[in-house]
């Protein structure tokens, strides 16, 4: 337990320096997220990416954390704009791979993030890997477009393990559903 704490201390210090954000044990402060929750469409071809960034929180998040598309083990990997929990990438899995011995949950909530390199928005399925206790590495928290749990389809606090062999949460993944 103490070892875990020391790790987390060092981890969060690193993350703090990198992003100059306040970082908590469980929550990584990501900043912003997609406001588009079914009420309006995202413009397909934004006239000005800067202008879009001012209006679109998913874009603003990507800008604020300097989102990148190469390292899925960092909280500022572009898909994690609304991810909540420990990254499967740091636990022997990946954003679309459950670690050995865990069980992918068929259920999830679906959000969306902006890819900083092509300026396009992608639907992301935030599926949990389940069946054994937490893998306590790489805690990240994004809240892009995330709503309270009375709107479950848009909430990331829920243990999205319905349908897995057990409802025990192991880690969080972020699979791309498609390009909008």
């Amino acid at each position: 337990m103490a070892k875990g704490l020391q790790f987390m201390d060092r981890f969060f210090e690193r993350m703090s320096r990198r992003t100059a954000q306040q970082v908590s044990r469980r929550h990584f402060v990501s900043g912003l997220g997609a406001a588009m929750v079914g009420a309006t469409f995202l413009p397909v071809l934004p006239v000005s990416r800067k202008a879009q960034a001012a209006e679109d929180p998913a874009a603003a998040w990507a800008k604020q954390v300097e989102a990148q598309t190469k390292d899925p083990r960092a909280c500022n990997y572009w898909r994690y704009c609304s991810s909540d929990g420990y990254l499967c990438s740091c636990c022997g899995g990946g954003p679309a791979t459950c670690p050995p011995g865990s069980v992918p949950s068929p259920t999830s909530w679906v959000g969306s993030c902006l890819n900083p390199d092509d300026g396009k928005t992608y639907l992301i399925a935030y599926r949990d890997c389940c069946g054994k206790d937490s893998c306590p590495k790489c805690a990240c928290l994004g809240s892009a477009g995330e709503k309270p749990a009375y709107i479950p389809q848009l909430n990331n606090d829920i243990i999205w393990c319905f349908g897995a062999s057990s409802m025990i949460y192991h880690c969080s993944s972020a699979a791309i559903v498609g390009q909008i």
Partner: peptide, 10 residues
């Protein structure tokens, strides 16, 4: 202090 959608920030 934070933009909108930081509703879980300490």
């Amino acid at each position: 202090k934070g933009p909108k959608w930081t509703h879980k920030q300490a």
